[in-house]
Structure formats: structure tokens, C-alpha cells
Design a protein around this nucleic acid. Sequence first.
DNA 1: CTGTTAGCGCTTTCAG
DNA 2: CTGAAAGCGCTAACAG
Lengths: 328, 328
Amino acid sequence: MAGRARASDVAARAGVSVATVSFVVNGKARGRVSEATQERVRAAVAELGYVANETARALATGRGHSIALLAHDMTNPFTAEVAAGVAAALAGRASLVLALSTGDQAPAFTDATASTVDGVLLNWPGGATVATGTPVVHLDDPDAPGPGVCFDVEAGARALARHLLDLGHRRVRYLDAARPWATFTRRRTALTEELTRAGADVQTERCGIDLQVARELTLARWDHWRRDGVTAVVGATDIQTLGVLSGLTQLGVAVPGEVSLGSFDDIAFAAVAGPALTTVRLPAHELGRRAAELLGELIDGGPARGQVVLPVGLVVRESTGAPSTLLG
Amino acid sequence: MAGRARASDVAARAGVSVATVSFVVNGKARGRVSEATQERVRAAVAELGYVANETARALATGRGHSIALLAHDMTNPFTAEVAAGVAAALAGRASLVLALSTGDQAPAFTDATASTVDGVLLNWPGGATVATGTPVVHLDDPDAPGPGVCFDVEAGARALARHLLDLGHRRVRYLDAARPWATFTRRRTALTEELTRAGADVQTERCGIDLQVARELTLARWDHWRRDGVTAVVGATDIQTLGVLSGLTQLGVAVPGEVSLGSFDDIAFAAVAGPALTTVRLPAHELGRRAAELLGELIDGGPARGQVVLPVGLVVRESTGAPSTLLG
DNA sequence: CTGTTAGCGCTTTCAG
DNA sequence: CTGAAAGCGCTAACAG
């Protein structure tokens, strides 16, 4: 029976009209309904276990109290952390509908589900079309027009570059993500600039954001890298770098003895890898939280402010060290 | 203007009634609406970019075309994989609302959002109350009443036990998950039984499902374990075992030289760890997919069948080996 | 202070 | 073959 009682049932039980029920249930009874009546309504609500049908409310008010998160690969702990941040910000005040993408396609976000949500959190740069008029907040997409939350990846890239430079590295290989997203372009550009400005050499290779793919790439390319005198490899994401580490370990290459490893994200696994990864920490949880808050303001009619850029920091751990003098 | 057109707009443009529009849009026009009229309606739909408001449809039909997934810690790649499986099964035909839990609380699933979905996928054993009448499918909860999809964790535990026994291990430490969930009880019980039956000794310790927590525990307990003559440690989940591996690596303990490591799940990281983890593979993606399919049938009025149990398999990799003879 | 009433946008009988 | 009309359950003017 739970969940079945309707407002009219409550009204009948309390001897009032549905309008009155609606007012007290929505806390809009102040100065409109007498205390005594309110009490009677509340009692009826409790007895019947009444809960307003959210679908009907949505139709009547135009507010569904739910937002969508369009993302790619929730299997990447980084994305999962973003989702956790979003969920934390929502805290039960709204529900989260997840639209995940498969392969290289944009997330499955049908127009039907679009008509259900109040706004969308877009973590899929470039792709997905969202009906104009729907509030949208872009995540980790610095080039996106309109409101968004992103990271200062360039500052992070430069810090990582300087760290490598200070250690004495002069030949680094950058593993870019095989996706044309602004966040990745910026990581690469900033890292490359900082490194080349100091006279170091950086070559880029593209690699899918996948443990095994990065691992295979490393197995296939290591000989080449070594002959090139590469002393440090930087991945665009921890996932890739962890894959590289796996390949290197399998090949018996010492890290950071023979090669240093650096990357971006700081997912939980980065800290427990052997060796633990030196990485640019991008606060994923906060990204999700802030984005959800921003979207909430937008939905409530707030002004459409621009991008909020979150500060990042370099976390130096064990995967970076001085380059082997044997190769100097 | 996109997303704003209503059925009445389409009706006006096509010179028909909203009823007719509804019929052709929903593919129920066969034998009710002439081909010519249908064509006119379709043209109007295309010109106006009409998409039915899902909320209104939901109110009218009682079907929201969306289901909820109540889960804990999407940050665990295992859970993320389950979600991916669910999303794959839905394939845009329904939307997925995510209810995540924070800490030890049941997932945030308010009655309001409950009234929005057609059914729920429950991946939170024991806890969450879902209104009776709402179709529910339990995930990875073998003791759950009613429909569900779970793993044959006992067979997996026994296979792992035999593998350890064959290698020569006689003293193992089991790191149970600090959650009173049936799936974990079964893993522990089956492993313990199989091991003790062969005369081996197993001691259990409880540990949160968290990389750092497992790592700290290992750092604190290793001396004790070693003095006890432990030659193998089995974690209830890969996350825990990966944490143990991290602690052991930090302590300079060789794996599998000094201790062998085994666990359950087979998340992607298990395969790239150094050494790669020997683990009982629980097909998470399939769990999600099957559960979503089952829920779909239930929602469509199908019979409530019992638990579907998915077969599991032991994946032997590098973290297990013969126990050190020095400790024999 | 409280009830009546007109929608929200769509589906679906029921007449015609 | 097509349209009028009655809801789905709730909200929010507007009267009283």
C-alpha cells in the first residue's frame, strides 16, 4: 500500500481539500492554514504514508528535481569520483540520471530523458547535443562556451615540467589521450612549452585511455624510447601511466631508476602503485560538487557565470627521480 | 525553441487532433489513421522537432521509462563496471537514475525519486527500503528474497583455496570485508571450509574495502602475520588486496616470494598490478546487464523468478606461488 | 483561513 | 478513419 496514497486520500482523511494538503506538504501553509488543520493533515500524511508523486509534481511545476550527468566511461575512477562529488552536492535534494557512453559515441541521452531533467552536467566535450534552453554546465572543458567548471591543467603541466627539469630530465615522451578534448590539448601544450623553453626535447604519442592499451603500447615502444634516450614518460591520465608502469615492470625496466613517470589526475590507485605515481592532482570530487552547485543556481534562474577554474597541485611521489647517468 | 513544441502544436500544424498525433507518434496508428494523415503528422513532427514530454507521458501511462540503481561507492571499479553493464542493457530505452551512498548509510533514495522510477536495482544488501509493489532485483546478494542476480562466489572461493593448497600453502590470512553482506560471508565460509578441510589454518581479519585502509592494516599487521607463519593472504575484494600489495611492497616483502596474494573481483587494475593479481573473476558487467534485463521483464509483468547465479572462474596470475621453504 | 478550479502535456477510451 | 473528452496526481491562482 505504501506509495499508493494520493493527496485526495489524505484530504479525505483529514477532512480538508487537496489544496490544503498540498500547501502543508510543501511547507507553504504559513499564514494560510491554521495550526490545528496543519496538524490534522500531518497526522493523515503519517498514517497513510503519503508521499507526493514526483512525476505529477514535475508536470505541474515544470521542475523534475533531477539532473543528468553525461559522461564517458564511469569505469575510470576519475569519472566515478566526479559522479560521487555530484551526488554529494545533490544530497538527496535531486536525483541523478546517468547517461554513459559506449565506445566513442556520445553518451546515450535521448530527447525523452532530456525532457525529464532540469539541467545537465556535460562531461563529454564537443559531442552531445542538448536542447537549447536546458541549463548546462560543462565539466573539465575549458573551451566550452557558457558556464563550466574546469581545472587549471596548464599550471599543473608546468609544475610537472619544472619538476622533471629540476631532476635533470631533458628527453621526455608524452602520451597524449587519443581524444580531441581541450583539456588534453592544454595539458600537452603547456607541458611541451615549459619543457622546450628549457631546452628539453618532448615527443608526443597518442594512446587510448585504457590500462591495457597503454601497457601494450609501452611493450611495443620501449626499445624505441630507450634508443631515443628518453628518461621520463608523462601520461595524460593516471590510467595511461599506470598501464605504462605495468609494461615497464614486465620488461624489467626500473622506475624511476631507468625512467621516471609522471601524469595527471591522482586517482586512488596512483598512490598505491609500486612505485607510487608522481602526478598532477585534479580535484575530481570538487569538480563534481561545484558543477552540481553551479547547475543548481542556473536552474533556479541564477546568472550564467563563466568557467570556474579549480586549482591543481603536483603530488610528488616515488615514480620520478634523477635520470640515470648511464644514459646521460 | 527545440524541445518546446507540444503535441497540440504538431496537431495544429498537421490539421489533426492531438489524439491522432499521439497515435502516430507512438506507432499505434495502424488501421486507425490513414497513410496520408500519418505522413502529414510526421512531417509536422519533423518540422517542429517535436519530442513528447516524457514527464507527461509518465503521468498518463504510469511508466517513467527509467530505473534506479542503488549502489555503494561507484569509485570502486567493480561497481562502476556493474553500472556500465546496466547502461548497456538499457541502451537508451530507459534512463538510469543513480542513488549513491555516502559512508555507511544506505544509498540516498528518497521516496520522491522512488515515485519516478519503474523499478530498482538494489546493490545494497539488507539496507534500503523500497516501497512494496515496486519491482526490485537484487544484485550480488545471494540471501535476498525474490529476484536477483548473484555470483557463485563459493565455487570461486573453493577454487582459490585449492589453488593455494596445491601450491603448498598451509597458513593463510583472510581479509574479510567489514560489511555484513551475504556475498562476503559466503566467500569467507567457503574458503575457510575448503582450506581447513585440507588441514590448513585460516585466520580472518576484517578490513574496510579501501586501498589505504588495507594498506595501513598491512603495515600494522605484517610482523604479526609473519610470526604466525602466514604464507598467503586472501582479500575479499581486489581493492583490499591491492592495498595489501602496496603495503607489502613498501615493507620490501616479496610477492609471491614471501607471501602469495589472492582475491575476488578481477577489476582491471588487478591485471596490471606488479605482480598481477591471482583472483576469482566475478563478471560485473554481466551482473549489471542480466539484472537490468530481469528487471525489465519484471516491470513488463513477467513472473518473479528467483536468483540467477552467474558462474565465476579463477584467474591465476603472478601473485601466487609456492610458499617460501625458509618458512616451512 | 479554506475550498474551487483550471491547468501541466500526454494517452486512451468512446462516439461519430 | 478521426476527434472530443476524461483523466494521470499535483500545484497555484483565485474566490469566498
